[in-house]
């Protein structure tokens, strides 16, 4: 499993596009559900928009519960990758570098997103940081 993390429009999807002609994109921005990823048997599966999926859970669950939920997804994805011999790419948006949000809900959103990114980083064999279209291997 590979993680590409970077700011908005920093070239995360392009990194995958430059390497694969065909990949299956599961995008929160297209209103896809993260569950869909677990039933797909394609050679390359790309997931993006984790912060959106996290945001959808904010009103329903507490921080720890949401973090655990996503940790569960990440473990499932890793298991799927190993068992089905597919490549999983996680594209995650860096949102932690601005001013601390005024609203409590936004602080919770930002915190959980950061924790999920750390959990993803732990499970991924490679981690890349994208910055204005350039990509650096961090792990």
């Amino acid at each position: 499993m590979q993680l590409i993390i970077g700011g908005a429009y920093s070239g995360k999807r392009k990194y995958v596009r430059d390497r694969y002609l065909n990949y299956h994109l599961i995008s929160a921005y297209n209103h896809d559900s993260i569950d869909e990823a677990l039933s797909i048997n394609k050679p390359v599966v790309v997931l993006e928009g984790f912060e959106q999926w996290i945001q959808e859970e904010l009103s329903r669950k507490g921080s720890k519960e949401i973090r655990d939920l996503f940790a569960g997804y990440l473990h499932e994805l890793l298991k799927m990758e190993r068992e089905e011999n597919i490549q999983v790419y996680l594209l995650m948006l860096e949102i932690g570098r601005g001013i601390v949000p005024v609203e409590e809900r936004d602080r919770k959103w930002r915190d959980i997103t950061g924790w999920v990114q750390q959990d993803a980083q732990n499970l991924c064999e490679s981690v890349y940081y994208s910055w204005h279209g350039l990509v650096k291997k961090m792990k």
Partner: peptide, 8 residues
């Protein structure tokens, strides 16, 4: 300036 790494 890197302005794209904060909250959307």
């Amino acid at each position: 300036n890197d302005v794209n790494e904060g909250m959307p």
